[in-house]
Design a protein around this nucleic acid. Structure first.
Length: 315
DNA sequence: ATAGCGCCCTGGTGGC
DNA sequence: TGCCACCAGGGCGCTA
C-alpha cells in the first residue's frame, strides 16, 4: 500500500521520463477513478498539456501541467500503481485492474493500475488544489517537521498516538506500516495518549520517523502484495520491517513475540517488551534495530529482494 | 475532541 | 471440493 516512501519512489522513477513530455492521449477505463468528473471532460482537460514537474505532497502525486498551470492529482490509496510501458494496443485496455492510460509524447504509455479501485485522479487549478490539500499536516522530511513542531501538535491531545500518526492532518504521509514501525523504533506503545509523551519520547519519535522514511526511500519502498515502482520493480524495505505484519514472530530487538491489537480500526503490531503501555524506562530508543551493517547503497529495486507476496504476512 | 462505525473494493485465506 | 465469512486499509462521512 503506497505510503510516503512508495509514492516518493514512484515519483523519482517517473520524473525523468515525464518531465517536459506532453500528454497526447488520456483514456479513463474506470469512470470511478475520476468521479464525480466525467471521463471525457477529465481527458479533454489533460490532452495536449505538458508535464512540467512531478511532485509529491504526503501520499499524493502532483503532475504540474503547462501551459494551463493546472495540476493532475493522483492518490494510489491501497493497491494503485503506475507503470511505464510501450504504447498499449487497444485490446489490452480491457485488462482487469487497468484504470487509465496516459499516452505520452514519444510513444510511451503511463498506465494506472488499481485492483481494488480505491485510487482517485483529479484535475485542479492552483486555487482548488490549495483548497484540496489545505488540511494536510507538514511533510515529515521537510523543514517544518521538527521535534518542537511535533511536540506542539501532540500537546494536550488525548487521542492515541497511533491514531495521531495516521491522521494526515497531523503529519502527511504515514500509513499503517510506517506508523507501526516508527512507534517501534521510538519504543512507544501505539495506545499511548498523544499528549502523554515525554519530551524525550517526542524527540525519539521525531527521529524515528525521519530515519525510517529516509531508509525506506533508499530501499525503494515496501512491497506488500502489489506495490511496484513505475518500472515494475518491487521495493526492498519489506525485509527490514521490524513489527508490521510480524505478529507472533520474535521482536528483532529482544525476541519477545510481536503482539497485534486494533487501534483506530487498524491492525497494529508492536513489541510488548520494547513498547510498554506506560511508565518510565519505556525503552531507550531503538536506533540500531535491524543493524547498520546492511546498507542499501547498491540496492537496485527488484533485484534479489522480490519478497512481494509475503505468505507470513497474515500470521 | 474523539471513538467507532460503515462504505468503497477485490483477492486471498481459513474454517467447515 | 465448494461455499462463505472474514481480512487487508486510506480517506471520508456519519453518529454518538
Amino acid at each position: 500500500m503506497p505510503e510516503l516512501p512508495e509514492v516518493e519512489t514512484v515519483r523519482r522513477s517517473l520524473a525523468g521520463v515525464l518531465e517536459g513530455r506532453a500528454l497526447v492521449a488520456v483514456e479513463v477505463l474506470d469512470p470511478r477513478l475520476v468521479a464525480p468528473a466525467a471521463p471525457a471532460a477529465f481527458a479533454r482537460r489533460l490532452v495536449g498539456q505538458r508535464v512540467r514537474r512531478l511532485c509529491r505532497r504526503g501520499k499524493f502525486l502532483l503532475f504540474q501541467l503547462a501551459p494551463s498551470g493546472e495540476v493532475l492529482l493522483l492518490h494510489l490509496r491501497m493497491t494503485g500503481y503506475l507503470l511505464l510501458a510501450p504504447r498499449l494496443r487497444r485490446q489490452m485496455c480491457r485488462e482487469p485492474g487497468l484504470r487509465a492510460r496516459f499516452g505520452l509524447e514519444g510513444g510511451m504509455d503511463l498506465l494506472l493500475w488499481d485492483l481494488r479501485r480505491f485510487g482517485t485522479a483529479e484535475v485542479h487549478t492552483p486555487v482548488s488544489l490549495a483548497h484540496r490539500l489545505a488540511a494536510l499536516g507538514p511533510e515529515p522530511l521537510g523543514p517544518a517537521f521538527t521535534p518542537g513542531s511535533l511536540a506542539r501538535r501532540l500537546a494536550g491531545r488525548s487521542v492515541r498516538v497511533k491514531t495521531f500518526l495516521l491522521d494526515q492532518a497531523n503529519l502527511a504521509g504515514l500509513g499503517n506500516i510506517y506508523a507501526d514501525e516508527a512507534l517501534f523504533r521510538a519504543g512507544i506503545h501505539p495506545e499511548r495518549r498523544a499528549g502523554s509523551l515525554t519530551e524525550d519520547e517526542v524527540s525519539r519519535l521525531h527521529q524515528a520517523i525521519v530515519e525510517l522514511l529516509e531508509e525506506a526511500i533508499a530501499w525503494g519502498g515496501t512491497t506488500v502484495r502489489t506495490y511496484r515502482d513505475a518500472r515494475g520493480a518491487a521495493g526492498g524495505f519489506q525485509q527490514r520491517l521490524a513489527v508490521y505484519g510480524r505478529a507472533g514472530q520474535p521482536c528483532p530487538r529482544c525476541g519477545t513475540p510481536v503482539a497485534r491489537i486494533r487501534v483506530a480500526g487498524r491492525s497494529s503490531c508492536f513489541c510488548p517488551a520494547c513498547q510498554p503501555v506506560a511508565g518510565p524506562g519505556a525503552g531507550a530508543g531503538l536506533q540500531a534495530v535491524g543493524g547498520r551493517e546492511a546498507q542499501p547503497l547498491h540496492h537496485r529495486p527488484g533485484e534479489g529482494v522480490t519478497v512481494w507476496s509475503d505468505r507470513s504476512w497474515s500470521a
